[in-house]
Each structure stands twice: as C-alpha cells, then as structure tokens.
Computed example of a mutant assay.
Amino acid sequence: MRTIILLALCGTLAACAARSTVKLSDPQATKLTAHSGQVCMLRSPLPANVKHKVLGNINSSKQTYGSVNELLPLMAADARAIGADTLINLNTGQKMGMWAWARPVGTGVAVKVEDQGFSCASAGGELR
C-alpha cells in the first residue's frame, strides 16, 4: 500500500513540473542540426529586412504556481534541439489553471536567422 501511495505522489509531483513542447511548421522538412549555442529570446517579430526560416512553435507551461523564468530555459533548449537560434513573438504570462490560480505559460515561434548581420541586442532580445 505504501508503494502505491508513493508512486501516486511521485506521479502527481512530476505532472506539476514545468514542461515545453514543439510543434514543427513542416514535419516533412529537412531537420536542422541541434546546437549548443545561445538562443535570442525576442518578444517582437524580427525586423522586416532580416531573412529567416520558421521552424516551429514552442509552448511551455507549469501546472502549479511559479515564475515564467522557469519556462525560458526549457523553451531555449527546445529551440536549440530543432536547430533554431531565435525565438520570436515570445509571449509569457500567468494563466488560471486547475491546480493554481496563476500558473506560468509561454509561447513563441522558433526561427533560424539567415542574415549574418543580425544582432539580438540591437533587436531588443535577450540571449539564453
């Protein structure tokens, strides 16, 4: 009986952890190589003159209370895993949930910037 209660408790706690998912724009497209570099987190779209390729959408959330800062490293890791170097239209906030009045959520579009002259800092982004 203790084992069952312990497993149920562990399962409940694991479900409360922050998580992030990726939905690829074109699952049939050639996959880019994952990298370990920094990802530019940009709350706005890229400037119109910056060439880029959209790779997918990233959604992140936590089922319990917490800060959106818990989600940003997960979102950056997902972007790296699909070969993206920039996350645009980053939107984070708190949302009402089943287990919390205010749980952190985040969305963004993962892109690969093809313009070598692009500067994350100049565009108002933050490197993660």
Rank of each mutant, 00 (worst) to 15 (best):
A79F: 09
Q94Y: 10
A84D: 05
M98T: 14
L87Y: 05
W99L: 14
D85Y: 11
A100Q: 05
A102S: 14
R80I: 09
I88N: 00
Q94P: 01
K95W: 03
T92N: 10
L90F: 09
T92S: 14
D78H: 08
W99V: 05
M96T: 12
I82E: 03
L90R: 07
I82R: 04
K95H: 11
G93L: 08
A81H: 08
Q94A: 11
Q94D: 09
G93A: 07
V105A: 05
A84I: 10
V105C: 01
L87P: 02
D78Q: 14
L90H: 00
M98I: 12
G93D: 10
A79N: 03
W99A: 11
D78R: 12
M96D: 05
I82S: 01
W99M: 15
W101G: 13
L87K: 00
T86F: 08
A102L: 06
A77P: 00
W99K: 03
L90Q: 04
P104R: 05
K95E: 13
A81L: 06
A102E: 11
G106T: 06
R103K: 15
N89V: 00
A77M: 12
M98V: 15
A81S: 15
K95C: 01
G106E: 07
P104C: 08
M98N: 08
A100T: 13
T92W: 01
N89I: 00
L87R: 03
R80V: 07
G83Y: 05
N89K: 14
M96K: 11
D85H: 11
N89G: 04
A81I: 06
L90M: 14
M98K: 13
T86N: 09
L90G: 03
R80M: 03
T86R: 05
A79C: 09
L90C: 04
G93C: 11
R80D: 05
G93V: 10
D78L: 00
G106F: 02
G93M: 10
A79D: 08
R103M: 14
G83L: 07
P104E: 09
R103C: 03
K95Y: 07
A102M: 12
I88F: 04
W101Y: 07
N91F: 01
